[in-house]
C-alpha cells in the first residue's frame, strides 16, 4: 500500500442523520438514528444535524428537534416532492459541501440505500452497510460493526482517511430517545439552484402496499418453525397469540409450506423484527432466521432439542415438547389474566 493522504479531520464536524420519509411522513428509523447520533456526538462534542430533503417538509422539520437534533437542514422544493435520485443527490451534495459533517447515518431503506452510495462515490469516501454497532473514537473515526456473509460473520470497519464517513443502519437496530417536551435547536432552510433539480426519472404513480399489519412493528411476536407439525396446530398458536395480543410470524420453511404469508417470514430473506417479546416455537435458530430477530428485547425459545442454536440467542430457553408446553402455557396465561 502506498502512502495515502488523510483529510484534515478538524474541518469536518457534526453527526448528520438523513431524514427518511415519504411525503413528509418521517420513517421511525430516523428517530432511532438521531438517538444514536446524539450519543456519539456527545462523546466528541459535536452537534447533531438532521438533513431533511422534500417538498413542504419545513413544518414537520421542527419535530426532529424533540428527538436530539440540534440543527435541521431543510431542502424544501416542489421539485423534491417525490424521491428521484438526481435532485435528492444534488441537495445532499450541497449540504455536505456547505456543512462538512464528520459522519452521516442513513436508514437502510430503499431511498437510503440509493442515496448513501451515490454520496460515497461522489465524495470518494467510505460507506459501511447495515451497521449494528456504532462507536466513536476521540479522533472522530467511527468504529462500525456489521454482519456479512448472511450474518455468519461480523466485520469491524473504519474509514480513517476520508470524510464524511457514511454508514447505513437498518430499521429497529438502534434506539430512539424519548420525545423531549421542549424543542431545542433550529431549522435552517436551504436551497439549490433549479438547474440541479432536473431528473431523467419521472414518478408516475405511488400506490400504498396492501394494508398489512407489519410484523416489523409488532410489540409481541409468536414465531413458529418446523417443530409445528400440521397446519391445524396453528389454531393453538393463534390462541396463544390472541391471549398475548401478538402477531404470528415464522421461519422460511413455514412460509414455503403455505401456512404463513410471505410477509410473515422473519430473517435474512424476510423481515427484521425487534419486538419487546418474541416466543419461538419449534425453531432451530439458523443464522438466517436469527439475523432477523436477535435484537428483540426478550427471546423465549421452546425447543425439544437442548442443542438447538436458538438457545444461543434466547434469554430464556425452554427445553420441552411444544405440544406439551403450549397447552399448559395457554392455560396458565388465561389464569394470570383472570387473576
Amino acid at each position: 500500500e502506498e502512502e495515502r493522504a488523510t483529510v484534515d479531520k478538524s474541518q469536518w464536524k457534526g453527526i448528520c442523520v438523513y431524514v427518511d420519509h415519504v411525503d413528509g411522513e418521517i420513517h421511525p428509523v430516523t428517530m432511532e438514528l438521531l438517538g444514536k447520533a446524539r450519543e456519539l456526538a456527545d462523546q466528541v462534542n459535536f452537534p447533531v444535524h438532521a438533513l431533511f430533503i422534500g417538498s413542504q417538509v419545513t413544518d414537520s422539520a421542527a419535530e426532529l428537534l424533540h428527538y436530539g437534533a440540534d440543527k435541521v437542514y431543510c431542502y424544501d422544493d416542489p421539485a423534491l416532492k417525490d424521491f428521484r435520485i438526481e435532485p435528492y443527490a444534488a441537495a445532499f451534495e450541497d449540504y455536505i459541501r456547505k456543512v462538512q459533517p464528520s459522519s452521516i447515518l442513513v436508514g437502510a431503506t430503499t431511498v437510503g440505500r440509493s442515496l448513501a452510495p451515490r454520496m460515497a462515490a461522489r465524495f470518494r469516501t467510505g460507506l459501511t452497510a447495515d451497521c449494528t454497532v456504532l462507536e466513536i473514537k476521540e479522533n472522530t473515526d467511527l468504529v462500525q460493526i456489521r454482519p456479512a456473509f448472511g450474518g455468519n460473520i461480523m466485520a469491524q470497519i473504519k474509514t480513517p482517511h476520508t470524510r464524511p464517513q457514511l454508514a447505513t443502519v437498518r430499521y429497529k437496530v438502534m434506539n430512539a430517545l424519548p420525545r423531549k417536551a421542549e424543542a431545542s435547536g433550529e431549522v435552517i432552510v436551504c436551497t439549490v439552484p433549479q438547474e440541479k433539480m432536473v431528473s431523467r426519472i419521472k414518478v408516475l404513480e405511488v400506490r400504498p402496499k396492501e394494508k398489512e399489519t407489519s410484523i416489523s412493528d409488532a410489540e409481541t411476536i409468536i414465531a413458529v418453525g418446523r417443530g409445528v407439525k400440521g397446519e391445524k396446530d396453528m389454531a393453538m398458536v393463534e390462541e396463544l397469540a390472541d391471549l398475548l395480543g401478538a402477531q404470528i410470524a415464522g421461519t422460511r420453511p413455514l412460509v414455503e409450506s403455505g401456512w404463513l404469508d410471505t410477509r410473515r417470514q422473519i430473517g435474512l430473506s424476510g423481515r427484521t423484527v425487534k419486538p419487546k417479546l418474541i416466543i419461538t416455537l419449534g425453531i432451530s435458530g439458523s443464522v438466517q432466521f436469527a439475523a432477523g430477530m436477535k435484537s428483540s428485547d426478550y427471546i423465549f425459545a421452546v425447543n425439544c432439542d437442548e442443542k438447538a442454536s436458538i438457545f444461543d440467542i434466547a434469554h430464556y430457553g425452554i427445553v420441552g415438547d411444544l405440544y406439551e408446553v403450549l397447552p399448559e402455557l395457554i392455560r396458565r396465561i388465561k389464569m394470570e389474566k383472570e387473576a
Binding site: 459501511t128 454482519p147 460473520i153 474509514t159 444461543d312 434466547a314 430464556y316
Partner: peptide, 17 residues
C-alpha cells in the same frame, strides 16, 4: 476508503437461563 479492522464470529448470548 474503508478498512476492515477485524472479523469475528457473531457473539453468543451468555446471560441466558
Amino acid at each position: 476508503p474503508t478498512q476492515v479492522e477485524r472479523i469475528f464470529p457473531p457473539a453468543v448470548n451468555a446471560q441466558r437461563e
